[in-house]
Amino acid sequence: MRRLMERLVAPILGRLGITPNMVTLVGLLLTVGVAAVLATGNLFLGGWLLIAAGLFDLFDGALARATNQSSRFGAFFDSIIDRYSEAVIFLGLLIHYQRADGPQTLTAISLVYCAIIGSVMVSYARARAEGLDFECETGWLGRPERITILCIGLILNWLIVALWVLAIFTNITAVQRIFHVWKAERTAKAAEQPKVRKPLWDFLRIEK
C-alpha cells in the first residue's frame, strides 16, 4: 500500500502543489468528521470512515518521501496531529455514550477515559524515551493497532469489547515501554563500567 501511494498517488499530489503538511491537516479535518458521525450514534458508518481516514493518513509520509520534502518539523507536526486525531475520535465516542444514556453508559465512558489515558501515555512514553536517546517502539498496542481494534469494534458492533481491550492493553503497553527504557538504561550503564579482571582463585574467597 505504501509503495503504491509513493509511486502513483504522491507524484500526482506533488504536481498539484499539495504539501505533506496540507495533507496532514486535511486528515485531521476528516477525523473530526468521523468523530461527528460517531457522536450521532452511527457507529457502523463511523468505523468505515475511520478506515478511510486512516488510509488517508498514510498520504503525508508517502508524499514527503516521493517529493523529497521530508523534514524533522514535518515528522513532529504529523505526530502532534496524530494525537489530536486520536483524541477527537474518543471525544466523539464520549458524546455518543453521554447522549445514549443507557445502562452501560457509566462503564462505557469510564472505558473511553481509560483508553484515552493509555493512548496518551503510550505516545508520551515513546516521545520522552526518544528525547533521552532511547529507541522505544516496543509494546503491543501502537497507534495502528489501536485504530484497527477500534474499527473492528465499530463495524462488528463489538465496541464495548474493543474499549475493554484498549483500556487495558494501552496501559499495559505504556508499562512495557517504561520497563523497556529502564532495562535499556541498565544495559547502557553496565556497558560503561570498566570490567575488573579477577584472579582465577577469586571464587575461593568466602565472605563471612
Rank of each mutant, 00 (worst) to 15 (best):
119 S>C: 06
179 F>H: 13
158 W>Y: 12
130 E>R: 08
96 H>P: 05
163 L>A: 11
185 E>G: 05
85 S>N: 14
89 I>K: 04
139 G>T: 08
107 T>D: 04
92 G>V: 07
172 I>T: 09
159 L>M: 06
174 A>W: 13
149 I>D: 03
168 I>F: 09
175 V>K: 04
82 D>P: 08
89 I>V: 15
146 R>N: 10
136 C>W: 02
169 F>D: 11
154 L>K: 03
174 A>P: 10
163 L>D: 10
82 D>W: 07
127 A>V: 15
173 T>C: 09
144 P>Y: 05
167 A>R: 10
137 E>D: 14
154 L>A: 05
97 Y>F: 15
137 E>S: 14
134 F>T: 13
120 V>T: 07
166 L>T: 09
121 M>N: 09
100 A>S: 11
85 S>I: 10
106 L>Y: 00
138 T>S: 14
142 G>L: 07
142 G>V: 09
103 P>S: 07
170 T>N: 13
77 F>T: 11
104 Q>D: 11
182 W>S: 15
138 T>K: 12
144 P>D: 08
155 I>C: 06
173 T>S: 15
130 E>M: 10
130 E>F: 02
114 C>D: 03
178 I>L: 15
160 I>D: 03
146 R>G: 07
167 A>V: 10
122 V>A: 11
79 S>A: 15
111 L>E: 02
120 V>K: 06
115 A>V: 03
184 A>D: 12
82 D>L: 10
78 D>K: 12
156 L>Y: 06
142 G>D: 11
182 W>N: 14
110 S>W: 03
151 C>L: 02
115 A>D: 04
177 R>L: 09
90 F>I: 06
97 Y>C: 00
153 G>R: 01
156 L>H: 01
95 I>Q: 01
180 H>M: 07
105 T>P: 00
123 S>F: 05
138 T>A: 12
116 I>Q: 00
139 G>E: 06
160 I>H: 04
94 L>M: 15
172 I>W: 06
101 D>Y: 02
104 Q>L: 08
172 I>E: 08
140 W>S: 13
88 V>H: 06
132 L>V: 09
102 G>F: 00
165 V>H: 01
93 L>I: 04
96 H>D: 06
131 G>K: 09
179 F>R: 15
152 I>R: 03
99 R>L: 10
148 T>Q: 04
113 Y>S: 08
161 V>W: 11
162 A>H: 03
145 E>D: 15
87 A>H: 04
154 L>N: 05
154 L>W: 00
125 A>F: 05
138 T>L: 09
88 V>Y: 04
94 L>A: 14
170 T>A: 10
158 W>I: 04
93 L>F: 01
177 R>F: 05
152 I>H: 03
98 Q>E: 09
77 F>D: 11
122 V>F: 04
164 W>K: 13
165 V>I: 15
101 D>A: 14
133 D>F: 07
154 L>C: 06
99 R>M: 07
118 G>H: 08
